[in-house]
């Protein structure tokens, strides 16, 4: 964990330094205007400012990921370096160069490690969204930019989270920004998925304890009733860069 945190810190630093001039935003992306929001676990006092950014309207599909694997065969499941992807990498595919039948190509690309997701986005001239960007966009319901304190919306998200099954992208709901499937289709990687740990590194594993375990999980949370957010933060904190999970996919973002 410590190694991957260090690695992540380095990659983040490199990524920030190397941020290229913004590429044109394609129609497959939605413009998120940015603003302020209060994360479930704030890293400092007050709310966090999120700059305007573009976000894929849909999670990356198996079909799209197949194209990547064919172009960059180093990411085939039979060639990928184990340091970059666990044994479950693309395990749901029928073969290393086949993502399944037409319907399956519309499923979200899951069983993909953080390293792989990051490489895919870079290949598309994009990047993974930060946790703050992802969470900011995910506050939105179909009609409101911030529905996080709407009990009906919270209840709906919980029901979605706990009743997941493989479904094609675009089958949950489209939020007010025009972004589909942020909730309930698959979990999604973020660029700084374990930032909670990185930021509190000086306190050893304390941050991990407080974020993850039992009633201690509520300490420091800004909204003790936001269970969907607890689930998301808890889930991310359990990950390492090479983790691959059936229900974990991703989408890409871009600066504006």
């Amino acid at each position: 964990m410590r190694v991957s945190s260090l690695f992540l810190a380095i990659t983040l630093a490199l990524g920030a330094a190397g941020a290229a001039a913004a590429a044109p935003v394609g129609p497959e992306m939605a413009r998120i205007p940015g603003g302020r929001y209060l994360p479930l676990f704030a890293r400092g006092p007050g709310s966090v400012r999120v700059a305007p950014f573009a976000l894929d309207r849909r999670p990356v599909t198996r079909g799209e990921y197949l194209a990547f694997v064919r172009t960059r065969p180093g990411w085939r499941r039979d060639r990928v370096r184990r340091a970059f992807a666990g044994p479950g990498y693309l395990a749901g595919w029928p073969a290393a160069d086949s993502a399944g039948a037409a319907r399956e190509l519309r499923l979200p690309a899951t069983g993909v490690s953080w390293f792989a997701a990051k490489a895919y986005c870079a290949w598309r001239g994009k990047r993974l969204p930060t946790t703050d960007e992802w969470e900011f966009a995910a506050l939105a319901s179909e009609s409101a930019r911030d529905a996080a304190r709407d009990p009906a919306f919270v209840a709906r998200l919980l029901a979605l989270y706990t009743s997941r099954r493989p479904r094609p992208v675009g089958s949950t709901f489209r939020n007010v920004y025009g972004v589909w499937d942020l909730h309930g289709l698959a979990w999604e990687w973020t660029l700084d998925f374990n930032s909670l740990m990185v930021s509190d590194d000086s306190r050893g594993t304390a941050a991990r304890d407080h974020a993850l375990y039992c009633a201690a999980g509520v300490i420091g949370a800004t909204d003790a009733r936001n269970y969907p957010a607890f689930l998301r933060y808890g889930f991310r904190a359990a990950l390492e860069g090479r983790t691959t999970i059936d229900g974990l996919g991703f989408r890409c973002a871009q600066d504006l």
């Binding site: 989270y161 706990t162 304890d209 993850l212 375990y213 808890g234 889930f235 059936d246 229900g247």
Partner: peptide, 26 residues
């Protein structure tokens, strides 16, 4: 869909084993 762990009240140790037993799906 979720990571899970186990806290056994018979355990004398951090989290009753919770941290030491955490497993993501698969």
């Amino acid at each position: 869909t979720m990571p899970h762990n186990i806290d056994l009240h018979a355990v004398t140790g951090p989290g009753g084993g919770a941290e030491a037993s955490m497993a993501v799906p698969g």
